[in-house]
Nucleic acid binder design. Structure first.
Length: 340
DNA sequence: AATGACGTAGAT
DNA sequence: ATCTACGTCATT
């Protein structure tokens, strides 16, 4: 299978491009391209999208030969997902079983991230999918197309569908060690990682996926730790805000004792109108960026009005009065623990 | 206990 | 106005 080759050199498919890559191929090494692309993801965005499309097209076409598919999971996923995702029938590749609308276009819920987010305006309520690019850099049509032809779908679907798999674990499996030489990761390890995928630095993933993978990356992962840090910083800011904001009507005060640690209690008969608690923003479910798309909450979103079960904040799962009050610094400590 | 449905707070 | 999702209650 030449998937690795295709992944590394999509131009080998023979189609022409109207753009030029900022890329001087180094003999025997394609990695500089990835570094280069990573460094300048926004400027080269259209080029990247073109690459994504070529990948998607390639896999889409390859699916025709699904009999000898190198992705045995594809059929399985298709079987499972088809009733829920009719588009899977069309593309022979199941779409990402997550809320792609949310993933690509919709805005995020207000987590406790009230800190100085760089893209506060651009991202606004959009899921903090891509820390590098604001929403305005993501053409909607392209986004939708990627959603339909998402070449990551089979594995992503499988990984995300596994309920015991936390968001972090799920996304970690999408990582491809930067040290893996291009093309060196063949079919062998495709089960656990995207063997055909270039290292993350290559940005050869949909923009959102890049960040999602790095968000949950371990501290040791090299490459794009900046995005990781950026997100964590946002959380730090958020945590600092609602920890240090005392109890004077700031969002912290609204969090009840689960987060804000200043309320007198859940069942505060103190007459204070019951305020909605907010997601802590730091627990694993909170850090998960995409909806599973298959849980009851996702399926019943219209009537259920509930967040994806796997994104439900751990703190909010607890009864408001059942948790020990979290010291304001504890959250920060947790946050910083991710750094090191 | 789990789930579904609904009202509505909060954000944009 | 619209959207997300928390809180609550009824049902299973």
């Amino acid at each position: 299978m030449s998937s690795s080759v295709c992944m590394e050199t999509p131009h080998a498919h023979g189609h022409t491009h109207g753009h030029t890559h900022n890329y001087n191929p180094t003999p025997g090494r394609d990695f500089p391209l990835q570094i280069d692309s990573c460094v300048n993801p926004v400027l080269d965005y259209s080029a990247q999208m073109e690459r994504y499309r070529s990948f998607a097209t390639f896999y889409k076409n390859s699916a025709a030969a699904a009999a000898a598919t190198p992705f045995p999971q594809t059929a399985k996923i298709a079987r499972i997902a088809t009733p829920l995702f009719p588009s899977a029938r069309l593309s022979a590749m199941p779409p990402w079983p997550c809320d792609n609308a949310m993933l690509w276009g919709r805005k995020p819920t207000a987590v406790n991230v009230n800190g100085p987010h760089t893209h506060r305006t651009g991202m606004s309520r959009a899921e903090p999918v891509n820390v590098h690019m604001s929403a305005k850099h993501i053409p909607q049509d392209s986004a939708l197309q990627m959603g339909a032809d998402n070449f990551l779908s089979p594995l992503a679907a499988e990984q995300c569908r596994g309920l015991p798999v936390t968001g972090a674990e799920c996304m970690n499996r999408l990582k491809c060690p930067p040290s893996v030489p291009p093309g060196g990761a063949g079919e062998a390890d495709r089960g656990g990682t995207f063997g055909g995928m270039p290292p993350l630095g290559g940005l050869s993933l949909p923009p959102g996926v890049i960040v999602m993978t790095t968000l949950h990356s371990g501290a040791g992962s090299s490459g794009v730790t900046m995005s990781d840090s950026a997100f964590q910083i946002a959380n730090v800011a958020a945590d600092c805000q609602h920890s240090g904001s005392s109890c004077s009507g700031s969002p912290a005060a609204l969090n009840g004792n689960a987060n804000g640690s200043c309320s007198s209690g859940s069942s505060n008969g103190s007459g204070a109108a019951k305020r909605k608690r907010k997601r802590c923003g730091i627990c694993a479910p909170c850090r998960r960026l995409i909806n599973c798309g298959v849980c009851s909450s996702c399926r019943n979103r219209k009537t259920g009005h509930q967040i994806c079960k796997f994104r439900k904040c751990e703190e909010l799962k607890k009864k408001p009065g059942s948790t020990m009050e979290r010291a304001p610094s504890a959250g920060a400590a947790d946050t910083f623990r991710w750094f090191f």
